[in-house]
Structure formats: C-alpha cells, structure tokens
Amino acid sequence: MALAKITSFTGRAVAVPGNDIDTDRIIPARFMKCVTFDGLGEFLFNDVRKQLDGTLKPHPLNEPRFKGATILLSGANFGCGSSREHAPQAIQKYGFRAVIAEGYAEIFFGNSITLGIPCVTATREDIAKIAAAVEADPTLEVTIDVTKQEVRFGGQTVKGAIRESARDALVNGRWDAIGELIDGLPAAKTTAAKLPYLAA
C-alpha cells in the first residue's frame, strides 16, 4: 500500500490551551454510538464548544478568525484517558492535519500516527510563542517540518520533536503499519507455533 510521505505540513494554527485534555473531552462518549467514523468532526470538543441546546460557548474553535486552521496547539498529556480512536478521527475529520503539544498520552499518540497525523512535541515556551504569533495574526502560516523536527512561523524557528519510530514512519510513508504487518504474517504464524497456548 503506497502511503503519502509526510515530511512537512504548512497551515494555519489555533490554540486550544490546557493540560490533561482527555479523549472524553475531545469526543464525548455519546457520539461514539456509531458504526463508522464519518461525521465525527462536527462533534470535536463538543461539550466545551456548545451548550446543550446547540448554541455556541466561547471557544477558540468557534472564533471565525480561526476557521480553516489545520494545526492544533495544546498543552501537556494531550489525549489522555480512553483508547478511543474516535478522538484522533474527530480531530482529522474536523480538518486538522497536525498537532503541536507539550506531550501526549501513549495510546492517543500511536492512534494519531497510524492515521498520518504528525503529533510533534514542543516546549511550553515555544508553544506560547507560536500561539502568540497566531493570536496576533490568525492567517499566519505555520510549517511543521517532520524531517528536521522543527516548527517555523513568522520568521521564527523552534524545535518540534517527534519520536524516531514515528518520524521514520511518517517521512517514509509507512505510518499505517498494515502492509508491513501483512508481509510478516508467515513469520507471525511461526512465532505462534512456538507458544503452547497458541499452538494448541
């Protein structure tokens, strides 16, 4: 399966600040009553963005000036909690293509990479700089260079780190492992035959 090589991405950004933003907040459980991921984008951050009657609450994603942003900025331990892939799916279906945060929960990070969403890590100070620049000019273009592990915006460059296995997977177009895993199926059967509980 030929996958796109994700070496860098340029787009406008929006900051959704806060630490420990959990996947229940990213996509509340009631929207998981579905058998496909289609349509999840509409409910991204639903309960912090909308009142029960659907009217909008103050939230960065509700501000017209940030419409069309494709890079999400956030804080530490982003995506903690449930393993639901509905969370990165909602982020992607909403229109985001990349995330810059101080850190990620493990499962969320893995799920996102598998969907080809670069999740880069930057320091709090650097994220604040990007957020300030975007706040001053929401049309500012931000570039995430996955190959060089840096983020460029408005003439500034900061570090945007990404774990080597994920960086390799993105830039070499193997972020969805399924093709490689299928190639390894005969080897998997050999490994299984050596384990009593699977050989039986």
Binding site: F37, E85, T114, I178, L185
Partner: peptide, 15 residues
C-alpha cells in the same frame, strides 16, 4: 489498550 486501526491490524494479522 489499542485504537480501532490496531484492532484492524490484530484482526488481519494477529500482530
């Protein structure tokens, strides 16, 4: 605990 794409991976390859 895994995401849905990995559920697919495990179904298809047990890995």
């Amino acid at each position: 605990g895994i995401g849905t794409s990995q559920v697919r991976d495990v179904l298809a390859t047990q890995t």
